[in-house]
Structures are given as C-alpha cells and as structure tokens.
Amino acid sequence: MKRVFLIVLDSVGIGEMPDAADYGDAGSNTIRAAASSPYFSMPNMRKLGFFNIDGVEIGEKEKNPSGSFARMTEVSKGKDTTIGHWEIAGIISNSPLPTYPNGFPQEILDEFTKRTGRGVLCNKPYSGTDVIRDYGEEHMKTGKLIVYTSADSVFQVAAHEDVVPVETLYEYCKIAREILTGENGVGRVIARPFVGTPGNFTRTVRRHDFSLQPPKVTMLDQLCGHGYDVRSVGKIIDIFAEKGIKEYVRTTGNEDGINKTIEYMKQDFEGLCFTNLVDYDMLYGHRNDVEGYAKALTYFDERLPELLAAMRDEDILMITADHGCDPSTPSTDHSREYTPLVMYGKPIRAGVNYGTRGCFSDIAATILAYFDIKPECAGEAIPIL
C-alpha cells in the first residue's frame, strides 16, 4: 500500500535565488535567520540530511544521512503561497498574480459594497495585526468592513465577530471571490475574523481562504483520476479550491497539523496526504519574530521522530516549503528563496544529494512516478527509488 506524506513547512526558505533582487529580496535567507536564535535546534532534520542541501549555510553536515535531499528552484513568477503550492503540484505560473500596492480599484470596492451592503475601511497594504489595531474601533462603530492587502496577491477582509458573524464574513468573501476574476483575479480572498476590545484586538483561528481554481491539471487531479486517495491537512484544501482532494481536515496551527497528519498515518489508505504547517509564515515570518520562528522549527524537529515512527514499509515522507519569509529583514513579506526537499522512507535510496532541481514541480513528477502515473503536469521525476 503506497503512501506519500508531503509536508510543506510554510515559508521555510533556504537562501536567496538568483533573481531575488528583482523581487526586493536580495540577501534573504529564512533558515539562516532562524538559526541565529539560541532557540534553534534541528538534530533530527540534520540526520535526514537537511544541512547537507546545496547552499545551506547553517548546522553540522551529516556524514551518513538517513534521507535524501535536494534544493528546489521556483520558476513561476511570484513568491506567494498559491503560486508556490501550485508549482509543487505541477503548475508553472508564467505570469504573476495581480497585486495592489496602492489598494484596490474603486469599481471593485463599489461592487463589493453594493453586494454586501457594507462600506469599506483602509484599502491599503497593511500588517494584519496593525490593521485591526488601527481600524478595529471604527469598524465596530460603523459596521464597515476592513479591506486590505499585502505584497501578495490577496484581498483580505477583517471583521469583529460581534459585528459580523463568522459565517456572514465567509459569505462576504465568497462575494469578493466572484468579483475578483480576470485581470483582477487575486490568488486568495481571505476572511480575517477578530475579537477583543479597542487596544486589545486579536485575530482568531477561524481564518478562511477562498482561492482561485488551479488553471491546469495537478498531481492531485491525476492521483484522484487513477483511484488513489488524496487527503489534505491545513489550508491545502483552500489553496487548491477543493480541486483534486477527496478528504480534508483544517487545523488551528502547527501542533494540530502535526497531530492530524499522524492520525492519517495511522489510517489505511493508498495515495497522498498533503499537509501545510502555516505558523512559520503566519505567526513569525510576517511579524519578523526570529525567536518565534526558531522555536517553531525546533518544535517540528522534536515531533519528527513521531512522524518517522508512524511510517509503514511503502511510505515516503517529503518535507519541503513554498517560498521564504525571512524574519530578520525589514520587510514583513514573503521572500524569493530556494526551498528544501528532504525525503525519507524504506523505498528510497538514502544519503543521496540530488543537487539543485529545476523547479518545484519535480516533487509532483516524483510522486506520480512512485504511483506509476505518467505526469500530465510540469516537472521531472527525481530518481529516488
């Protein structure tokens, strides 16, 4: 019974790509930033070969790695969650998704207001925690929705749960998703509910993403089409707009995501379990919290033996990332970086450095090859068997 467990450590980049300067990210290196903290410790990932990956400048290299590994190159035009995950799944995006450094066009906001019956506040790129601090009180007084964006292709709507019930906020975001198509087709519309009082607002775990449908066939579609299970943990279901996924669970954070991945590992199925662990990006990268980022990586490493112990004879574990988000730079946005790929399992050859791969989609091609499926998507299979 063949199974692949693909875990995305969201934003754990391993050093700037050659075109990083084009994205404003020269010098970015997320893993190096996290490793500068005394709270950083990843001995179990080291044993698998993480520090042996080309270009990784931290940690002690393992003489006899129990896993195999590679450095992954993003070729899509972008550095956001949607583009990164789509490329992992076999879609190369030759054009970037639209971004709005000056806010959204008035005609979009007018249509949104018309259909929701609520006005709009902000309409600027903003930090998610800062925007509720600065606009939360006015939102509570007026009922207007806080609409903001970032350097990524996102239309974010924040609302206090006492002013706009969460399910209603989701409906408003579905309306925005219907409006934002064509040249204004942002990667994600994100519901950002919050609670609290002025001066003490906090975001809740009831965030929900409404993504574009992937424009082409992905490895998820192909696996489903050949009768295999595709299960997702965390926001994968949202990133792929439910396309090519048979079963899913959402999560409240990394701990919950790891727990639910292990629960799936204990179940009988044949196919793929695709997990996103979002805390690195959401809680620490975007907030420039080096220590928090380091602690989160250390926590994953401490839980890694549980994942390895739950593996069966035909299981393969793949650990990768979708972009960078260097918490030590002045920017709070994603960074254009190489990502790691660490692989482990009885079916694969151990201790092999597969160098720097041509695109993230090599992961998709490798997974499909393991299930003897000819890829209809991008990527070249890594000869891991």
Rank of each mutant, 00 (worst) to 15 (best):
I175E: 12
V290G: 03
I384A: 15
T142D: 07
N184K: 09
Y280G: 11
D221P: 08
L317R: 12
V342I: 15
H286T: 11
I367V: 15
Q222V: 09
V120A: 06
L317G: 04
E302D: 11
L277W: 02
K266Q: 14
T356M: 13
G185Q: 13
E16S: 15
D110V: 12
L317Y: 10
I236E: 00
V290H: 04
D229N: 13
N353E: 07
E138R: 15
I88E: 07
D289I: 03
V290I: 15
V75G: 03
L180W: 06
F50R: 00
P105M: 13
I83F: 01
Y126W: 15
E137Y: 13
T252M: 11
V4N: 05
I382Q: 02
N288H: 12
D333H: 12
L317V: 08
T252R: 09
R192A: 06
T73F: 01
G119C: 10
D315V: 09
G185Y: 01
R203T: 06
K266D: 12
G324K: 13
G143A: 05
A365C: 11
G185V: 02
E161W: 01
T30W: 09
M17I: 10
Q156G: 00
A159D: 05
S331P: 01
M318H: 06
Q213M: 14
S76D: 08
D209Y: 13
N254I: 02
P330W: 13
D221C: 03
N184S: 02
T252F: 08
N288D: 00
Y39I: 00
K374D: 14
S41A: 15
H160C: 09
L9P: 02
A378R: 04
S211V: 10
L307F: 02
K266L: 12
D221Q: 05
V195E: 14
H139N: 13
T332A: 04
T275Q: 06
N184D: 15
V12W: 07
V249L: 11
D162G: 01
D322Q: 08
G185I: 04
F194H: 04
Y148W: 10
M265R: 08
E337A: 05
